[in-house]
Amino acid sequence: MKTLQNCKVLENTPLTHDVYKMVLENKTDWIHHPGQFVNVTIEGQYLKRPISICDWTENSLTLIYKVVGKGTEIMSTKKTGDVMEILTDLGNGFDTSKASDEVVILGGGVGVPPMYGLAKQCIKEGKKVHVILGFASKKDAFYLDEFKSLGVDVSVCTNDGSLGTKGFVTDVMKDKGLCDAFYMACGPMPMLKAIYTTSNSKGLLSFEERMGCGFGACMGCSCKTLTGYKRICVEGPVMESEDILWKD
């Protein structure tokens, strides 16, 4: 259920020079699918900030966010014991029942966090999981150990080659012969488009848009798809690859 909740900060620590992990105390029984998001209230800022669910336990919710502006900067100053207000249960998330038994999960930059919860879910469902993570550079990489400890095939690439393969996640996908596997991905638009054109398979892609409400009321986040108009905050952020109308 969508509700406005006050949550105690259990942890808020830097993972890189500009990426933070925030763990909130929260009864997470509202989560339907990995890839859903919450809208975080930031005092002094008019609109809430959409952040994906990275991971969760029965009583805690993990968000990973990059400091890019005023709101995320304020988030980064929060201390253990502070209280954050979040609007829960937003977006559709990844419906893994649409995926096949072998999947490739691709994350780029701040698109990586929701892929962690997704990988865990797929493993729980007994799927064969390949993970490919892309970052700009070694200094930007995070959560590699966490992904590796899931015990699945994890590959890393960076644009400058400072860590893992030099190149893009699609290069790794080709190298590893994963172009026929059902894909699920989150990352910058050019990455999503490259996955769509490189792969021979179908998949699920998670998109971003600037939001007003985050729960379907303002039409701020609309996008045209082959099956009609969709709101990124309700019918998305995850879209089926065959449904997407790519703009150039």
């Binding site: 008019y46 939001m211 007003g212």
Partner: peptide
């Protein structure tokens, strides 16, 4: 077309 929303001080543009 999107983006259709921009945050402002104590308000928003749509």
């Amino acid at each position: 077309p999107t983006p259709r929303i921009a945050e402002c001080e104590r308000g928003m543009i749509n």
